[in-house]
Write a protein that binds this DNA or RNA. Sequence first.
DNA 1: TTATAAATAACTAGATTGGTTATATTATAT
DNA 2: ATATAATATAACCAATCTAGTTATTTATAA
Lengths: 137, 137
Amino acid sequence: MITKKAEYAIIILAELASHPPGSMVTSKEIARNRAIPANLVVQLLAALKEAGWTSGTRGPSGGIKLIIDPAEVNLRQVIETIDGPIGITRCLFSNTPCQNKTHCSLRGVWAKAQQNMLSVLEEVTIKDLAEKGAKDC
Amino acid sequence: MITKKAEYAIIILAELASHPPGSMVTSKEIARNRAIPANLVVQLLAALKEAGWTSGTRGPSGGIKLIIDPAEVNLRQVIETIDGPIGITRCLFSNTPCQNKTHCSLRGVWAKAQQNMLSVLEEVTIKDLAEKGAKDC
DNA sequence: TTATAAATAACTAGATTGGTTATATTATAT
DNA sequence: ATATAATATAACCAATCTAGTTATTTATAA
């Protein structure tokens, strides 16, 4: 399952993207605006920074800003940054089909189902959500 | 994520469907043929019986048999029988969008992504897998 | 009446989730 | 300079879920 943390990360990015480009927003503001636990915002911002999407300035009048075009980041990327690789079954995590059996016809079904899901998540960008005003679920 | 138990249940049904209609197979045979822990087979058969898909006869020369047309049972049904309702995010488990916010544009994305996945799982039946000789992953 | 097989129920170790808590570091307003 | 506001980093935790195991009971064919 896509975790709540990944969902929060998407919402945090959408919140940042909803402000004028280059402007700073504090983690507390994000937490308040989107009703996300403040400590979680801090934790998630660390991962978003690591991914190269945000940068922070410390001290008074500091904050976080987006350093990429929100149209260039899609939901799959954010989810995988926070949760790690996506797999709807354990089978899909190993890159080779079942070693102990000669053939696995289930794997193809899982792969197709997952790809159908991922293509939707790849189509939608942070910009799309920021425009629609994404809120928490 | 789709659990291993759900995957096992699918494979158990495919195994049953791969035998002549009406014929009996013991849980131990299923376990051996498909390399599934014998106790888990027993546990899962209870759920498959509850769903009305199999029936068992106890004692010597007993076993399990399918009591439905394997073409009538699809993967989504089996998964939901074992794992409960499918939801790629927590959001999709509540049938109403976020009460605390007026609108949630993320929900629509999750719903579409999930539906794209489910439609693949609905297309594939136990019969399809039995014909292809589905094995464990 | 005994061996065989399903049926039922309860338990468990380990991993994951959704956080919390504590502390350190840095920039700026005064 | 220095107090303060803010990011940054790390470690911890309770609750739940997963993938099983263990133990017991019931039915039936030979």
